[in-house]
Structures are given as C-alpha cells and as structure tokens.
Nucleic acid binder design. Structure first.
Lengths: 224, 224
DNA sequence: ACGCTACGACCGAACGTTCGGTAGGGCGAA
DNA sequence: TTCGCCCTACCGAACGTTCGGTCGTAGCGT
C-alpha cells in the first residue's frame, strides 16, 4: 500500500476513535512509522486531510445511493433502498462513517471546505426529502411530519456504526430488513417491499480497516 | 447564579458544540468573564469537570427513569416509558445529552472516573435489557435479536438531541408518541399502549441552556 | 465604631509540554 | 544529476496547570 493511503487509513482510525481534535499529527505519524514532518510530504494540512476523507466519503455515499435508486420509481421501493443502503454502509464502514457524521464541526466555520461538505451532505439528504415527499403526495405514505420522520429514520440507520459487529448474532441482511420494516411502518406505507440489496454497489473506502473492531492489538477500541 | 454553576453551564455549551478536546480552559474562562487561573478556583481539573457533568447527568437519567417505571409491571408499558422518557430527555436537554452520549472517549482509559461513568451507563441500559427480556419471556414481544432492537431503538431516541427544536412543526408529545409506536411495532407488541409522560418527573439539569438553540448571539450553533 | 484577622474569589505571570507547521539536508533509485 | 521521500531540528503559539499575591467582605473582640 502506498504511503498516502496508509496515512489515510491511520487517520480514519484515529479520528474515529479519539476524535479529530484529540488526534495530533505526531499520533498519526507514529501510527505509520514516520515523523511528524514526514506526514507533511503527503498532506497539505491536518484539516485538509480531514476534508479529503469527508469529501470522498460523501461522494461515495451519493454515487452508491444513486446507483441503487436507479430504475426504482416507487416511493416505497426507494425508501427501502435508502434505509437499507445507509444502514449497510454504516455497518460495513464504521470508522469512515463516524468521521463523516461526527466531525463536521471540526472544519473551520466559513471555510470553503466546510461549505463544500455541508453541500454534499444536503445533496444526499435531498434523496430522502424527495422520496418522502413523493410518497406522501402519491398517497403511498401517511406522514404527519416529514422532517421528523426523515431525521429519526436516518438517526436509526447511522447509529448502526456505533454498535454493529460483523460476527454478532444478527446478520447484516437481517438488520437491514428489520430497519426497512420499521421505516415502512413508520410512514404507514400501503405497499410492502422485499428488498434485495446488491452489496457490490456500495462504496468502497480503501482506507477503511476491514478487521473486527473488537479485536484491537493496541488495546484501544470503541467504547461499545 | 453562583460561579460554579455558571462555569458548568458554559462548559456544557462549549463541550456540546465544539467537543471536549477542542475546548480550552481559556475558552471556558472567556465565556464566564474570568481568567484561566480563576477557573481553577472552582474546578480541580478540566477532566474532573467533564466527569462531574457526566456523573450528575447519568444519575439524573437513572433516577428519573426509575421514578417513571415505578408501578408499571407490564413490559409494553415499561418499554413505552423507556422510549418516551429517553426521547424527551434528549429533546429537552440537547447539550447535556450530547456530552453524555459523545464524550465518554474523552475520559482517560483506566481512570476511575471513566469506569464509574461506564458503570452508570450500563446500569441505565439494564432497564432496557430486562424490559425487552421480560417482554420476550412473557410472550408480549417477539424479538429476533434483543441487542439489535435495544441499540436501534436507543439510537433513535438519543438522536433526538441532534435535530429537535422546541418550536419545530412537531410537538414533543407527538414525537414521543410516534417513537413509542415505532418501538412497539418493532418488537411486535401484542399490547397497545397509550402513554402519558409526566414531564415534571424528568431530570432537571440546572446548567442546561433553556434557549432556542437556533438563535445564537455569538453565531456559533450546532450544524443542523 | 474601630482595627484586626480570616477567607473566598480571583488575577497576572509563569511553568513545562505539546501543538501544527516549516526549513533544509541526506539518501536511494532512475 | 535529478527527484521523490523522509529525516533532524526547530519555530511560534497554545495547551493545562500552578503559584504568589491582591482584592472585598464577613466576623469579632474591644
């Protein structure tokens, strides 16, 4: 693996566990066997590194979502895809998604990088907004408050990155199916949906550590 | 208000917005019109201040939950109370709950303070564990995976602190009722429940800023 | 009413350490 | 010889924390 990617992999790991502010360039350097100065050959600044990770992360999420939504006109179908894919992405990429979801505040307010990431986040959430609105307009959903429903369902999906374990008692397919059922119930969907999620269409974050998060040789692991 | 409480109020505000690691003692001092040295007359250390806030927060959550659960033997009733109260507490105390939910990693690993907070968190979650288990044992619930269900429902409730606004389009009562319905549906409860939540039994965090979080005179506000 | 003492509250200045970032050089491969 | 890569050495600033000292005020014996 080239050095730039090794740095990104270590950065995602440290940012997700300890937080961006609590991670120093020297911590990052130690994790990839370099000195702090060596890092700056591959990275323009600490904040640019974070912004890069978040930008690629959001773009991957948007692209994958659009691929999965293609040729699915029915709102119930679309909502099922949104719930299932967001859940699966958070389950399979817990480190990347924790940084994406939780470190927006670490980008300096007013900077172009922050504005860009916020715009990407809003672009993604538009898929949810329009899907819920179309489902309500066409009479497929009955939703008292669309904002409430959207944020509650998204919180349920994104929370997955905090507790899902690949060798836990529930398979990813069952988690996604369960969440889709909950989501369709909470919008009082007339239609029922059986979802087949093509995992190969999900984004691939090359820096995401594909190991059991519970087994951490350094003894540093997420709380739960 | 006495100085110690003013410091705690400013600390909750800053920790919730910027994160513990990104908040300096000097930031905190500026917020209460003191010098950094003056803070240490009221506080033994930055980390002890965080631990104090989290301990009182967790104790208040546990006490309020036990008060609300008293004399409610039926699992469906108990689950409704757990969902409604956790949601309401997060909606009404967004700053305190964000710190409680998100800053555990800022307590140094192995310290007695961290172990204490983790024990309190586990004590609270036991109310959920036993409720789901009893509901399943008595045949009131049908739950394929209790851990999954518990963590998903708790994520939905705690997520409320990230988006709820007191003057939004949905009243707190409706949010809670909606979440209770979702929760009962996701455990396939045989019984239906109409919940009346006594808000006066919820914990009172004296440092929680009781202002509209969207209107921030300093221009610094949560992302959403 | 007075002076003396005690104490809580707070400040200015400094401690040692760590922060993000930079300058310049060494070294191996092409 | 050049270039990519990474090093040692270092910078100014900010960090959490401590220390000595200064206020204002409450209590109290006289």
């Amino acid at each position: 693996m080239d050095a730039g990617m090794k740095i990104k992999a270590a950065a995602i790991d440290l940012f997700a566990r300890d937080g961006y502010a609590a991670t120093s360039i020297r911590d990052l350097a130690r994790a990839v066997n370099m000195t702090n100065a060596g890092i700056y050959h591959h990275v323009t600044s600490k904040e640019a590194l974070l912004a890069d990770l978040m930008r690629v992360g959001q773009l991957g999420l948007i692209d994958a979502t659009d691929r999965l939504l293609a040729h699915r006109p029915a709102p119930a179908d679309r909502l099922a895809v949104l719930i299932g894919s967001l859940t699966a992405i958070h389950a399979l990429n817990p480190m990347t998604t924790r940084v994406m979801d939780g470190e927006l505040r670490s980008l300096t307010p007013g900077s172009s990088a922050r504005d860009e990431i916020i715009a990407l986040r809003d672009r993604y959430e538009d898929r949810w907004r329009t899907t819920l609105a179309e489902g309500a307009d066409q009479g497929d959903f009955r939703i008292p408050d669309q904002r409430l429903t959207r944020l509650a369902l998204m919180a349920m999906c994104t929370g997955t990155s905090e507790w899902y374990r690949p060798d836990g008692d529930a398979s990813l397919e069952r988690v996604c199916a369960e969440f889709v059922a909950i989501g369709l119930a909470s919008v009082r969907s007339r239609v029922q949906v059986s979802m087949r999620l093509d995992l190969s269409l999900l984004p691939d974050y090359p820096w995401e550590p594909h190991v059991d998060p519970r087994v951490d040789p350094a003894g540093r692991h997420p709380i739960r």
